[in-house]
Design a binder for these strands. Structure first.
Lengths: 156, 156
DNA sequence: GGCGAGAGTTGGATTTTCCAACTCATAGAG
DNA sequence: CTCTATGAGTTGGAAAATCCAACTCTCGCC
């Protein structure tokens, strides 16, 4: 899914080129939960089997998943996240947090993640230097490559 | 983009149903940078104009963007993020961080975001309760709704 | 020998995307 | 006043992706 026509160089776009296609991030969700078998994926995600097969190939190529044999005879496989794949879990967590906040009435969350501090996880994106929560108004974009113009931060 | 066939209830899936289609998150990127005009979006994203028009309608409907008039005669519009849209910026930051880490050699990042603490932003997802960085092995999933089975955390 | 599970493939119908060209309103140049 | 340009989209048809049900192939088990 390369973003067509001479777009800006951008790590967001490049990452989405790998995981931005329909179902890809849901595959990662399942795989992070330990549900890495083909038929589990089909059932839990509700994706067509052929599309799923395509996505899995792509994610393995990209080094986000690894295909592991869990039974030799009969040959059976399972997909697991690589280290790089696990790092994408933070994307899933922020997506889930947003959905829980904006798409659901109160506390009917379909899933709660428990952090090992003992509390339900409410993930927050912070600056690794100062530790503060990242807020739009505290950010300034500095394009490093040609092709970028920034009109100044957007206010709602 | 509803994930077909009776899938699991899931806030990740629901959020992706709104912003998971091709170009949608890139639109959000541009709009967060303040580049909210139609032709800017076309140029910076490299998306077909008709698709972009469709995405914009959807994002406005979803309450992620708002369409504002910035000139009455001639009538000219601009898209801006709503508060909910701005909250999705954390997703963009985590995607960018992943791409910078895994898809680029060293320090040729196409864009550096400066945090108002004065340093280049390196975003980290943390637990809002204990403040620790969120790592896969510290998480336990607790399904709240039917349709979920979890095989236990996945190891790479 | 037949049944069933797991992990995919295959072929054809349906949807989306893509692309270039077109519209429409207005502003400014000559 | 005509001509060109700009912004913000629409339109129509070709090309690509998706969806779906059915099929394959390999074993293990009763």
């Amino acid at each position: 899914m390369a973003a067509s026509k001479d777009p800006r160089p951008c790590s967001i776009a490049d990452t989405l080129a790998l995981v931005g296609e329909k179902y890809s991030l849901l595959v990662l969700r399942e795989v992070c939960l330990g549900n890495g078998r083909f038929d589990q994926l089909v059932r839990n995600i509700g994706a067509p089997r052929d599309i799923l097969a395509t996505r899995l190939k792509r994610l393995v190529e990209a080094g986000i998943l690894a295909k592991k044999m869990y039974s030799e005879r009969p040959q059976r496989f399972e997909y697991r996240p690589t280290a790089a794949g696990l790092e994408l879990e933070s994307v899933l967590m922020t997506l889930m947090a947003w959905g829980d906040r904006h798409l659901r009435r109160d506390d009917d969350r379909p899933m709660v993640i428990e952090h090992n501090c003992g509390k339900p996880l409410l993930p927050v994106v912070t600056c690794s230097v100062c530790g503060d929560e990242v807020r739009h108004e505290d950010l300034t974009a500095h394009p490093q490559a040609p092709g970028w113009t920034v009109s100044g931060p957007a206010a709602p």
